[in-house]
Simulated assay, not measured.
Amino acid sequence: MTEHTLNWMYDAPFIQHWHIDDTHIDHYKHVNNVAYLSQLEKLAWAHSNALGLQFADYQSLNRGMVIKRHELNYHLPAHLGDTLECATWIVQCDKRLTLTRQFQFICPERSKTVFDALTTFVCVSLDTGVPKRMPAQFIDAYHSACITTGDIAKP
């Protein structure tokens, strides 16, 4: 099954495959909550890198996008041996301080969404942690990748 046949929330997802191994499993024998958060971070960084922003750019600009809020929705358990299709989109970017990413993880074997999340990021100075306007490089990368301009649709 390809990403074109999966029921994505939005068109043109940025996708990575996540194979579930022993390190991701908790005592309930399904993927641990912390593993999902770790995968969100990896996916967001991979997407930022694909948009042309590396952590070295953040450092040279003395800016970073830090998490203000996570909204996590666990729909179905994922288990050892599953491979999930993990997607992200930038669904809001105000070109000043904030951007919002939508995430969706689908189990292709079941053709079901097992997890989705909405994360709001705030631009800060890396030196002080104080909110600061996005530099032009962030606006160029993130706003140009933003898929919506209005309200964020809820799944």
Rank of each mutant, 00 (worst) to 15 (best):
I152S: 12
V114P: 07
D21F: 05
L126H: 10
F138K: 00
H79Q: 09
I67R: 11
C146I: 09
G64N: 07
Q54F: 05
I90Q: 02
L43A: 05
C86F: 08
K42S: 10
I15S: 07
L84D: 01
I152H: 14
S125G: 14
N73L: 06
P135C: 00
L99Y: 06
K42N: 11
A117C: 10
S144L: 10
S48Y: 01
C123G: 06
N62K: 11
A136C: 12
R110E: 14
P13C: 10
I139P: 00
F14C: 11
W45I: 04
C93Y: 02
G52P: 11
W18F: 01
T100W: 05
D26Q: 01
A35M: 02
C146L: 09
D22Y: 14
D151K: 15
K95S: 12
Q137D: 15
N32P: 00
W89D: 09
P135K: 00
R69E: 15
Y36N: 03
C93D: 04
A153E: 15
Q59F: 08
K42D: 07
A78P: 02
K95N: 13
H4N: 14
L37C: 10
Y10H: 13
T98N: 07
A141R: 05
P135A: 03
Y36E: 02
T23G: 13
S48L: 01
E3R: 14
A153T: 15
P13A: 11
Y36T: 00
F14W: 15
V124N: 06
L126G: 12
L99P: 01
K68S: 05
F103K: 03
A44D: 00
P155K: 10
V31S: 03
C146N: 09
L72T: 11
F103Q: 04
T149G: 14
A50C: 13
K95M: 10
D140Y: 15
K112P: 07
K42C: 05
H47S: 03
V34K: 05
E41F: 12
F55Y: 12
L99W: 08
K68N: 09
T128D: 15
H47E: 09
T149F: 15
C86M: 11
N33S: 06
T100Y: 09
K29M: 13
Y58C: 06
L99K: 04
P108R: 02
D11E: 15
H143V: 01
H47M: 06
V66I: 14
C107H: 12
L72S: 06
F55M: 06
T83Y: 04
F14K: 11
R96T: 02
Q92T: 09
Y10T: 04
T113P: 14
I67A: 08
G64A: 11
V122Q: 05
F105W: 14
